[in-house]
Design a protein around this nucleic acid. Structure first.
Lengths: 220, 220
DNA sequence: GCTTGTTTGAAACAGGCGTATTATACGGCC
DNA sequence: GGCCGTATAATACGCCTGTTTCAAACAAGC
């Protein structure tokens, strides 16, 4: 087996393990076992577990030299549509079961940063934040100060992040049937978009009776 | 030293340690060291680290037999005021530095439940959820289905939770000065209330020019 | 074919962990 | 006082961790 081959195999095995268990709980033994390489290989190729972690994050971000293009849309799209696409991508990222391990790793870095690679993580999230702020630029009047724009952005992202970090809470606060029926990716994205657009004033508020609503059977 | 005395000392030492480091990273050696008791005491009094953890959570919830009354308000208060009080309490809980370790432990249980005490955690958060749903009952028209009310509640809580779970992200996305000036507990509570009330339709949206705004200097 | 530098393999090391064991000191009771 | 159940203390055990060691297998150059 060629030299770079085993290196790659270690990286590809390390990704899911780190993503699932976190840095501390992941063991180099499991990584090596999954990769089918010897235990010593990690320290031979990477020097230490920590360095392997850093390089795994880099590898995940950019496996072949291609940047991952987060989200794109036609530049002339309506701001509401851009926001919709952004939120849909966000929710999909949070709830998508087959989330590639790279996203999961990044999320772990949000929740409890290891500090091993501030820069990398920072760049990643700053890009997405700027994207959202750009959309808000087209919606908000210019006199709204930056701090308020940031707060609004956080309010939008926070709604989506909730379903990832508090998924266990959701799981026992709303029962299985309701979850299946109303808490899928699409419905949540639609709700968060509704909530946010209403907050921004582009939709009527959720509490005001909405004439266009299809008449669902009233709850007893 | 009396028997119950050391028991209490262990519990009170275990609280902060578990809260700061989490179940796995916390060690009984540190707990015993902080409590000034022998290493064997934990297993003597609690049988195992896990059981100590469970009893620590219970002890934190209810140290002396008094339930912690989460939040109260006059029953005849306006729904907006109740929501304001609720959100203020929420944000204070999330951001308050001197958060008693019990809150922190509960938050940890949200983010990564140990499963050691589902019931306890479940009761705790269901109570708060019901409180919020009660407030929404007074705001939303009756035909809004339960699932939508729950989504709205999660949208509100999610905004506040964000600043706890993603505090590191906030820290490098908005610079020190801005944070000091606009991301304190009071300002964030005010913003989340604004955003949510606007989303509900009780306030004008944030994007529509608000006549009552005090004219702050425009940003260049 | 031999030498040289590199990669693999299995085992061992040192340290930290939760837990168990054993022995000592305390405090009320006959 | 002597005794005994209980609380403390010190230490040892077994396990798992990241890391190191060192010999064997290998590829390449001459």
């Amino acid at each position: 087996m060629s030299k770079d081959q085993t290196r790659r195999r270690i990286l590809e095995a390390a990704g899911p393990v780190f993503a699932e268990k976190g840095y501390d709980a992941a063991t180099v033994r499991e990584i090596c076992s999954r990769a089918g390489v010897n235990l010593a290989a990690v320290n031979y190729y990477f020097g230490s577990k920590e360095q392997l972690y850093v390089e795994t994050l880099q590898y995940g971000r950019d496996p072949e030299g291609q940047h991952d293009q987060p989200l794109t849309w036609p530049a002339d799209a309506a701001p509401e549509d851009k926001l919709r696409l952004f939120i849909e991508g966000l929710v999909r990222q949070m709830l998508g079961e087959r989330a590639p391990w790279h996203r999961q790793l990044m999320l772990r870095e949000i929740l409890q940063p290891t500090g091993a690679c501030r820069q990398l993580v920072e760049r990643h999230f700053r890009a997405r934040m700027d994207q959202l702020l750009g959309i808000l630029d087209e919606i908000l009047p210019p006199e709204v100060p930056l701090s308020r724009r940031q707060q609004i952005a956080f309010s939008i992202v926070g709604q989506a992040l909730y379903y990832r970090v508090a998924s266990e809470i959701v799981k026992f606060l709303v029962d299985e049937d309701q979850r299946q029926a109303h808490f899928g990716v699409d419905q949540l994205a639609a709700h968060i978009l509704d909530f946010s657009l209403a907050a921004l004033g582009l939709h009527p508020g959720l509490a005001v009776p909405r004439p266009e609503v299809t008449h669902e059977p009233l709850e007893p």
